[in-house]
Amino acid sequence: MQIFVKTLTGKTITLEVEPSDTIENVKAKIQDKEGIPPDQQRLIFNGKQLEDGRTLSDYNIQKDSTLHLVLR
C-alpha cells in the first residue's frame, strides 16, 4: 500500500509499505529515499509519536495515510 510522509519543509515522500511493516522498517525506507538516519527521525500520526517496535496496523495506518516526519 502507499503512504505519504510529510516533512517540515513541506516536501511529501511517497512510500510503498505493508500494514505489517514496523515503524523501524518505515524509517529505513525514508533513509533509503532521503538519506536521513533513522535515529534522527520521529514519525507522528494523528498527533501520536510512533514507536519503532510497533507496526503500521497497530496504529491503524491505512493506505494513503499521511505521517509527519520531525527531525531531532
Score class of each variant (00 low, 15 high):
Asn25Arg: 14
Arg54Trp: 15
Gln40Glu: 06
Ile13Trp: 02
Pro38Ala: 09
Glu51Trp: 10
Ile13Ala: 06
Asp32Pro: 07
Ile13Gln: 05
Phe4Tyr: 15
Leu50Trp: 01
Asp58Glu: 13
Ile13Tyr: 08
Asp64Thr: 11
Ile30Tyr: 06
Asp58Arg: 15
Gln2Ser: 10
Asp52Val: 06
Glu34Phe: 06
Gln62Arg: 08
Leu56His: 00
Leu8Asp: 02
Thr14Trp: 10
His68Leu: 02
Gly47Ser: 15
Asp21Met: 12
Gly47Thr: 13
Lys6Ala: 08
Lys48Trp: 06
Val17His: 07
Ser65His: 05
Gly10Gln: 06
Gly53Met: 04
Glu34Tyr: 08
Ala28Gly: 10
Val26Thr: 11
Asn25Trp: 06
Lys33Arg: 02
Gln49Pro: 09
Leu56Gly: 01
Asp58Pro: 01
Gln2Met: 13
Gln2His: 10
Pro38Asn: 08
Leu69Ile: 07
Val26Pro: 00
Thr14Tyr: 04
Gln62Leu: 13
Gln31Ser: 08
Lys11Gln: 15
Pro38Tyr: 12
Glu34Lys: 02
Asp21Ala: 10
His68Met: 03
Lys27Glu: 02
Arg54Val: 15
Leu43Asn: 00
Ser57Phe: 10
Thr12Ile: 09
Gln62Tyr: 12
Asp21Arg: 09
Met1Pro: 02
Pro19Val: 04
Gly35Trp: 02
Ile61Leu: 02
Leu43Glu: 00
Thr22Asp: 05
Glu24His: 14
His68Asp: 09
Ile36Gln: 03
Ile3Gly: 00
Leu69Arg: 01
Met1Arg: 08
Ser20Phe: 07
Ile30Thr: 06
Lys63Ser: 12
Gly35Thr: 08
Arg72Ile: 09
Glu18Trp: 08
Lys6Asn: 08
Ser20Ala: 13
Leu50Asp: 00
Pro37Thr: 14
Leu69Asn: 01
Ser57Tyr: 06
Thr12Gly: 03
Thr12Ser: 03
Lys27Gln: 14
Gln31Leu: 13
Gln49Phe: 04
Leu15Val: 09
Leu71Lys: 14
Lys63Gly: 09
Gln49Gly: 11
Pro19Gly: 12
Arg54Ala: 08
Pro19Trp: 05
Thr22His: 09
Lys29Gln: 14
